[in-house]
């Protein structure tokens, strides 16, 4: 039953598969982005309160969602790598970090640009904003810790612990708006209850969220392949396939 799992985890196999998967993620992602941006900027009506400024939601919310999803993925991959001593899982965790950090930067910057005209401030030490900033520091700390080791295996293990410990910040970011008084409003889209956005305004948001997930997946394929090459540089399969190409 677990055979596929071990097969997938074998570096040459994973290297080949990731190369095959990538176009199937990248092109749909780009197509969905075009549809989503057209829907968000042109088709969706302006909000009754925020007018056209509300359109920033279509880049802000997917970036913020991805910043959390990528962290969870990084922590789970790091835990798998630590527990099963799986090199591929560590490669995935290491590849997630810079991408997650960029999504966090986007969420913070677009949020700030949105906050100025609507709330009246670029930045406030509100629980949501502060915990999202801590998320950025966790990503940066993870990358700095990795860079401080010469040996990849030691870097993998040390940084995995930081990634796993930092996962407690994820529910804090997500629920900060419910646990504490905050300037930031509650969630507008929810899996369990009716969404607080009108249907004509919510569909581009969902399309863009999916587009961001696929786009992230496409970039992750490339990054993990690069990490595999780095880790497998002394193996026979790599020498063989490199000479062939």
């Amino acid at each position: 039953m677990w055979l596929w799992f071990y097969q997938l985890a074998s570096p040459p196999h994973a290297y080949r598969l990731l190369g095959l998967w990538r176009p199937w993620l990248l092109w749909p992602a780009i197509a969905l982005m075009v549809i989503g941006v057209y829907g968000g900027l042109v088709m969706a009506p302006a909000d009754y309160q925020q007018k056209d400024a509300f359109r920033i939601i279509y880049v802000h919310v997917p970036s913020a969602s991805l910043s959390l999803m990528v962290y969870v993925m990084m922590a789970v991959a790091a835990a798998i790598g630590l527990i099963w001593r799986m090199k591929l899982a560590h490669a995935v965790a290491a590849s997630c970090a810079p991408l997650g950090a960029w999504f966090t930067v986007l969420a913070l910057v677009t949020g700030s640009i949105w906050g100025k005209p609507m709330w009246g401030t670029w930045w406030e030490w509100d629980p949501r904003l502060t915990s999202e900033l801590i998320l950025l520091f966790l990503y940066l700390g993870y990358m700095a810790l990795r860079a401080s080791f010469d040996d990849i295996q030691r870097a993998d293990r040390a940084s995995a612990i930081l990634a796993i410990v930092g996962v407690v910040n994820v529910p804090i970011v997500k629920y900060s708006v419910e646990w504490w008084n905050s300037l930031h409003q509650g969630p507008s889209i929810s899996v369990t209850s009716k969404s607080a956005i009108a249907g004509s305004m919510v569909w581009p948001l969902l399309v863009l969220l999916l587009a961001f997930v696929l786009y992230f997946g496409a970039i992750l394929c490339n990054r993990v392949r690069g990490e595999i090459l780095l880790r497998e540089r002394n193996t026979a399969w790599l020498a063989e396939s490199s000479l062939k190409s």
Partner: peptide, 21 residues
């Protein structure tokens, strides 16, 4: 930028692996 950096990283790693081989 994220996509470009990912491509470049992979290209460099592939070149390095080829030279080593």
């Amino acid at each position: 930028g994220m996509e470009w950096a990912g491509r470049r990283q992979l290209q460099l790693a592939q070149e390095k692996a080829r030279r080593r081989a």
